[in-house]
């Protein structure tokens, strides 16, 4: 059994105005694991992440990092282990140049000058930003700033990396690049990854396990388990990856699969296996239930829209009498 990198017990938090943001949150993330936290807007994801390195303190309950209780040990002890990359890179990069920003953390950790320079160099290299050392943040593109913010946290060499919406607002290339970097950091350096995201198509390839957070932990499990749970998805405004949907459609056309693939890689693997078993062919057909099944499937994933429609209809019937 791997040891727990982060343990959260009965955490709750209320905003200064009294609104409850988190209620009885429990979570355990193991060393070297990759975990996603999903949930609707305003579910308290960012607030939760801020508890992981002790910036916010819950009313009761505990956050432990490698067995050290946040709040009982010195702040530096926790910050050294848990690096948070915030969503807006303009919040993250606050120093005049990229070099200063990357050096900021290591200097605060009290490292010697040579070591600080060493770490900055390494972080720049990891993110492919070596020529950016003396650039000012306001001259960079959004994608570059996003990478620089990750570098600024990596220079502290955390054992746990917490990312808030790392793929939001990025162009496809930067997005793919960033996903690759995060995976590599995990695989090569064994860094534990926790990601809050809405990017469902990135989840299957990026993480091992998913938590659904909506003030409290609604569900927990592998991506397969979460994406198969229609009820949870509906309740929390969540989506499933497009590949997953496509294979559900294929199933209506008689494609035989037990566990639906979530990513392109899985899909390729799955198709190859199926075609090989069937002697080099893929057999699809339309039978009497196909259309009905497809219609049902579509309505299943239109729950966002159907919820809206129901609300509108409700409002209309409450108001004036509807005309035929």
């Amino acid at each position: 059994m791997k040891r727990e990198a982060i343990t959260v017990r009965n955490l709750c938090y209320a905003y200064p105005d009294g609104t409850i943001a988190l209620e009885d949150v429990n979570m355990a993330v193991y060393e070297g694991e990759r975990v996603a936290i999903v949930g609707p807007n305003g579910a308290g994801k960012t607030t939760f992440l801020l508890h992981l390195n002790g910036i916010l303190r819950g009313c009761d309950g505990q956050v432990e990092v490698f067995g050290k209780s946040v709040g009982e040990v010195k702040k530096e002890e926790i910050i050294k282990d848990v690096g948070i990359v915030f969503q807006d890179p303009d919040d993250q990069l606050f120093m005049p140049t990229i070099f200063d920003d990357l050096a900021f953390g290591p200097i605060n950790l009290g490292l010697k000058e040579e070591e600080v320079r060493e770490r900055v160099k390494k972080a720049l290299l990891t993110l492919g930003l070596s020529s950016y050392e003396n650039r000012c943040p306001h001259h960079l593109s959004y994608g570059e700033k996003k990478k620089a913010s990750l570098a600024a946290v990596m220079s502290m060499e955390p054992r746990i990396l917490v990312l808030d919406e790392p793929t939001a607002n990025l162009d496809p290339r930067s997005r793919a690049e960033l996903i690759g970097i995060i995976k590599e950091l995990n695989e090569r350096e064994g860094i534990t990854i926790i990601i809050a995201t809405h990017d469902v198509n990135a989840i299957p390839e990026l993480v091992d396990r998913v938590y659904v957070l909506n003030k409290r932990v609604i569900a927990e499990g592998t991506s397969h388990k979460i994406f198969s749970d229609v009820e949870v998805l509906r309740e929390n405004n969540l989506e499933v990856p497009e590949v997953f949907k496509l294979f559900e459609v294929l199933r209506c056309f008689g494609y035989n699969c037990e566990e639906l693939p979530l990513s392109i890689d899985e899909a390729v693997e799955h198709l190859t296996r199926t075609v090989e078993i069937n002697g080099g062919h893929l057999h699809l057909h339309i039978h009497e239930h196909t259309h009905e099944a497809v219609r049902k499937l579509k309505s299943k994933y239109e729950h966002h829209l159907s919820n809206l429609r129901m609300k509108e209809e409700g409002a209309q019937t409450n108001g004036t009498k509807r005309s035929g």
Binding site: N53, I55, I79, G83, G105, N108
Partner: peptide, 10 residues
């Protein structure tokens, strides 16, 4: 938010 980011890096 900036202050939180600063805080997070010691």
């Amino acid at each position: 938010r900036v202050y939180r980011a600063m805080h997070s890096r010691g």
